[in-house]
Design a protein around this nucleic acid. Sequence first.
DNA 1: CAGCATCCTCAACGATACTG
DNA 2: CAGTATCGTTGAGGATGCTG
Lengths: 107, 107
Amino acid sequence: MKNKIKKAHCAVDYAFQRIGGKYKGRILWVLRDGFLRYGELKRAVVGITPKMLTQTLKELEADELIVRKVYLEVPPKVEYSLTDTGKELIPFIGQMRSWGEKQMLTN
Amino acid sequence: MKNKIKKAHCAVDYAFQRIGGKYKGRILWVLRDGFLRYGELKRAVVGITPKMLTQTLKELEADELIVRKVYLEVPPKVEYSLTDTGKELIPFIGQMRSWGEKQMLTN
DNA sequence: CAGCATCCTCAACGATACTG
DNA sequence: CAGTATCGTTGAGGATGCTG
């Protein structure tokens, strides 16, 4: 993990820096049950631009939360999946999701 | 709750918008077991400026995650605490914290 | 298909000083 | 004590077009 954590004042700060940002939570979440290709991710994470998708995937990879697997084929094929560390995050992203769902209804 | 959620593509997105930002997680966390005054929060959330503290507290209050209680005394006294909705978030902020702690050690 | 390269905007965050 | 008020910065994110 070579990603620049600017300076975490505590573990909460640190964790939020690693899965904060506009798309990281969503990307980890859609990867929860398997492998997805770049284009599939692009469709799954509605509204993301190629630039942000690539950039976010790189950060997640540098943070060792996901793995990038390249198949040497034509046309190109790249699959992304969670690492064990990334999988550990799924339960509470799920909790957050439930919480968010409930909130969206009651507001 | 009148806070502007720009446009949530999904519940994960929505949840991250409400507790994202640089200090929200930390503030909710330090409020987990009771009431804290403005000055106590300022000391607990190391590195935060008065401006950011005030601003973040206002957002959390507008989001109905915390409650602001003013005592009409001299000198002034204001206490902040979690709402029930805010308390629901504590368990998984705790999980994130544990995860973050473990990560900080192994890196 | 899976990206990269540029340019640009804006709002989150910061520093500092002041106040009821 | 518990905030406001200004001003300044910067980098995350967006738009668009191009490529191996």
